[in-house]
Design a protein around this nucleic acid. Sequence first.
DNA 1: TCTAACCTTTACGTGAACGGCAAGGTTGTG
DNA 2: CACAACCTTGCCGTTCACGTAAAGGTTAGA
Lengths: 184, 184
Amino acid sequence: MSHLDALPADATTTDQADSRPLLRIQEVAAMLGLTTRSIRYYEEVGLLEPAARSEGAYRLFDEDDVERLRFIKGLRDDAGFSLAEIGQLLEDEAARTRNRARFRTSRDVSERRAIIDDALDRIDRQIASLQEKQDRLAEMIGEARGRRDHLLSHIAELESGVEPAPHEHASPAAKRTVGRARAR
Amino acid sequence: MSHLDALPADATTTDQADSRPLLRIQEVAAMLGLTTRSIRYYEEVGLLEPAARSEGAYRLFDEDDVERLRFIKGLRDDAGFSLAEIGQLLEDEAARTRNRARFRTSRDVSERRAIIDDALDRIDRQIASLQEKQDRLAEMIGEARGRRDHLLSHIAELESGVEPAPHEHASPAAKRTVGRARAR
DNA sequence: TCTAACCTTTACGTGAACGGCAAGGTTGTG
DNA sequence: CACAACCTTGCCGTTCACGTAAAGGTTAGA
């Protein structure tokens, strides 16, 4: 299912009151929790290109632009990618997306197929990158859990035989059966 | 020549008869894939404090320091936390580590218990942070998979309505190694 | 003892990712 | 038409996370 916001019909832009609502930079920024400066900067470094410009050169963003920006923000905030890495992940997807519209009318099947395959490859790379990052995170969580268990074993040690043991690192591996107080 | 005063019998660079080996900054750096500058910087911003200094003020790192640095690197590279956030996660764990020395000598069980409980809380917060980040990553992966499926449906659409394409593509779930070295 | 290879602090430089003006043009509303 | 509230480009400033010398002290080995 889609994840698009149902935005109010009230468009502050040139109301061509039809298919695609176009938003100005401030609206997009507020909507996504970005600053206008950031959005302009992303454009400056080639991460996106607004769908259109008004007569007076105002940037006008469509649904896809917003979606793309949301993705960028996610990659930056949640995944912690640099803008350069994000650029790699997005590559020239914008151009490709535009191409998709162009080739929708194409009757050359193999060409259409090639375009879609290309997009698929790119998405697969995106997923692989994210997955890789998630795996490393999982590993770190595992390590943290290990440290946690280690501490729990110390607690168990305290609660049972309370004498201050000689205590040097590395407790016996037999201490694995520590009751789980509360995890996660 | 500097003043040679009463000096604790050890004061060694490479391990002597001492139980724990102390490493110099370059060794630690090479070992972890960090630069010496980074390590000094982390100390500068309060992320760690080397276990000791040599007589000539060389930084000397023990196992715990290395472990801590490895954790910091993970939080930075894999989880994408800023050094400020890492500082939050590590809090004044350094001071707590010093407390552990007191802990070892303390015979007061409730005090020992308190120290451990505190450490446990901190680790739980670390895990929660990592978990949260992992959840958001999972969400992003889900969205990417959604886009992928969408594309696949387009492919199916193409394949059903036309004659077979001359050459085929790689299998759908081919896991391609996107082995990119991280910059910096 | 001498020396190469480390290390120290101090300090200025740098790229990334914006923040924040200024000076001026554009848009919707009264 | 007036005007506030947007927007534009241009440009300089800032924070973070280091890089890169400079000037000198320390350590281990021959």
